[in-house]
Amino acid sequence: MNKIRFIVIAFLASTMFFACKPEAYKEVGEPANNITAITGSWQLAKVVQVDKDAENKGFPFKEADLTSLFPYTEFRLTLNSANGAPTTFTTTPGNSPRIITLASGTWSVDDIKTPKVITLTSGSTSQKITLGAYPNAVSRRLKVSLERRSAADDKLLIGYSYEFVKQ
């Protein structure tokens, strides 16, 4: 009787043992490529000007939406890349104020995986723009900002925020 009980227990135990398998989790995959995300042809959709000095002092008038005051939405920015690395850029202002003064050239980033500052270069001239957010599944907008500082003492006086939509 004891032998039969032992055999049954051994059988059940072996069944349970063979039923155990490691969980088959899916691969995490490659991290999102932010250079690819910001590559493409972008059209300016929103412009906000911030008085940084007023903001610091807590004054009542801090920012203004400029989008409808000039034909900003005619401005286009194309960022090209190859093999996940920045290559060339072009800007087409139309009748918009030239928010980026350079017409074409090359672009580079401060960090290839998680870029924050884009440097646009044309010959010996360069212009830096700061990324506000990478386009992703939640927001497909490319957000960048420009700073304007006093030439005399480098004090931050004005900030411009730009939102682009992909063409």
């Binding site: 008085d51 000095d53 002092k57 203004a64 304007r148 006086l157 004005i158």
Partner: peptide, 25 residues
């Protein structure tokens, strides 16, 4: 002196300090 307190005025520029290439309201 740079103002530390906001004083409403009849005419006011925004931003208060701007350059020749900036948008001025």
């Amino acid at each position: 002196f740079d103002p530390l307190v906001f004083t409403p005025t009849v005419f006011r520029a925004f931003p208060a300090k701007v350059g020749q290439d900036d948008v001025i309201t």
